[in-house]
Design a protein around this nucleic acid. Structure first.
Length: 424
DNA sequence: TCTGGGGTCCTAGGACCC
DNA sequence: TCTGGGGTCCTAGGACCC
């Protein structure tokens, strides 16, 4: 039997902060979303205080003060770099790996297995901790969904941080106590609907007549049930080319000025184009959206979007920014206080498939080379070394990030300093 | 004062065709 | 009095994930 493993970092963002500041050990930590708005990650100590995931910081400000919770802005330069290091180690230790998110990866161990998988999982865990300082948990099972379940258990109920759910007896036992809402793919809406069938645990779902549920729900739930039964339906994916690329942000401060929204849109477009070229794709179109603060009770609300289809797929930042600006002009209405804007690159196609004909000659190769040159300069000398004028210089709309820790691993000025003091 | 950002997949329903 | 039916393609929106 093939076995899936899910390797998941424990409280990843909080753990990253701790690696470089050991005084944070055993202290409650929370990490904020972009713009310092919501709490998006918590250490175990913070979870114990009852601080929920996704809560706006201002609602928990007092609790944070009272219990001296350390509050950080998100530091993606640091988290991304730590993630790369961990995935690199995994690739050295395992053959078939799918990077699922910044802090998670699936590994497929193909039958016949020639070694003790449980022991090997312990080795993986120890190696990652030794080389990066990040603790991980590992779940093992015959399907991805079961590996996820096992990972949950590994995090909460084991001393080793590894749990294997492959054995039938262990699986049955575990599913009996596992809430249906904790299953991968079962969200709030489906949990609510399942309650009508008295399904509250993973075991209930595992045992229920699959055809009945198929009629009421979608094929997605059907697959989940099969997976709980140990029949893998969700394969390991190793392609990481995106089908669309989104770049959007809330502004640090609202703005009524077209020029500022234009700068922001241009900046987001430039960022998305870098990603586009990195995965060697071309975009067939762009969608631009803007809106005011949709939570505000007393101010006028407005939101709108517009899209533009290119004559032929492209990855040229200059051209795409011009199209983005055209879209923005169509939907921008003066007098509103804009809070957020963003763009989406649509229908991405691989570079090499691009069809040329006499009416649509290939993109100017010089322009393409220029783009690659800009990308490589920015990659080696810092993201903002070269940028398009349209992105603006003041960038008054830039997000808030007041409590970011140093970018310990990616910025020369912010490297951690080791000092030794002489005794006596 | 203060409410994230970036993705995927599936389905229903409309438009259109013969 | 009676107003087809089947197929495809596209899009918007919902649900989920981290």
């Amino acid at each position: 039997m093939n076995i899936f493993a899910l390797i998941d970092c424990n409280n990843f963002y909080a753990s990253c902060e701790r690696v470089f500041d050991p005084s944070l050990q055993n202290k409650p930590i929370v990490i904020l979303s972009n713009n310092d708005g919501c709490i998006v990650a918590r250490s175990n100590e913070a979870k114990k205080l009852g601080i929920p995931m996704g809560a706006p910081l201002y609602k928990w400000q007092e609790v944070c003060k009272k219990y001296q919770v350390k509050v950080f802005s998100s530091n993606y330069a640091l988290y991304g770099d730590m993630s790369n290091r961990i995935m690199h180690i995994l690739k050295e230790l395992c053959e078939n790996i799918e990077i699922y998110s910044i802090d998670e990866a699936f590994v497929l161990f193909k039958a016949p297995l020639k070694f003790d998988l449980y022991k090997y999982a312990l080795t993986i865990k120890q190696t990652i901790f030794q080389q990066t300082g990040i603790p991980v948990s590992i779940g093992l099972g015959p399907s991805k969904t079961l590996a996820k379940v096992a990972n949950h258990i590994a995090k909460k109920n084991t001393s080793t941080g590894v749990f294997d759910i492959t054995d039938d007896y262990i699986r049955n036992n575990t599913l009996t106590y596992f809430p249906v809402s904790d299953i991968w793919g079962i969200g709030r809406q489906i949990t609510k609907k399942l309650l009508n069938y008295n399904i509250t645990t993973a075991k209930h779902l595992h045992d229920f007549d699959i055809k009945t549920l198929r009629r009421e729900f979608s094929v997605v739930l059907e697959k989940t049930i099969e997976e709980l039964r140990g029949i893998p339906c969700i394969e390991l994916e190793n392609i990481t080319t995106k089908k669309q690329i989104v770049s959007s942000r809330s502004f640090g401060k609202t703005t009524t000025q077209l020029i500022q929204v234009e700068e922001a849109i241009s900046h987001y477009t430039a960022k998305a184009c870098v990603k586009l070229r990195r995965q060697k794709s071309l975009a067939s179109g762009i969608m631009v959206f803007i809106h005011t603060n949709l939570f505000s009770k007393n101010k006028p609300k407005y939101s709108n979007s517009a899209s533009f289809i290119f004559i032929k797929p492209t990855s040229d930042t200059g051209n795409i920014i011009s199209s983005a600006k055209l879209c923005l002009k169509k939907i921008f209405k003066p007098g509103f206080e804009y809070k957020k804007a963003g763009i989406m690159l649509l229908n991405l196609v691989p570079e090499h498939i691009e069809q040329h004909d006499i009416f649509n000659p290939a993109e100017d190769p010089k322009k393409y080379k220029l783009m690659l040159a800009i990308d490589s300069i920015n990659a080696s000398m810092g993201k903002t070394t070269l940028f398009f004028c349209a992105e603006g210089i003041n960038q008054k709309w830039q997000m808030k990030s007041l409590q970011r820790s140093p970018r310990y691993t990616t910025n020369w000025q912010e490297l951690p300093i080791a000092s030794c003091r002489k005794k006596g």
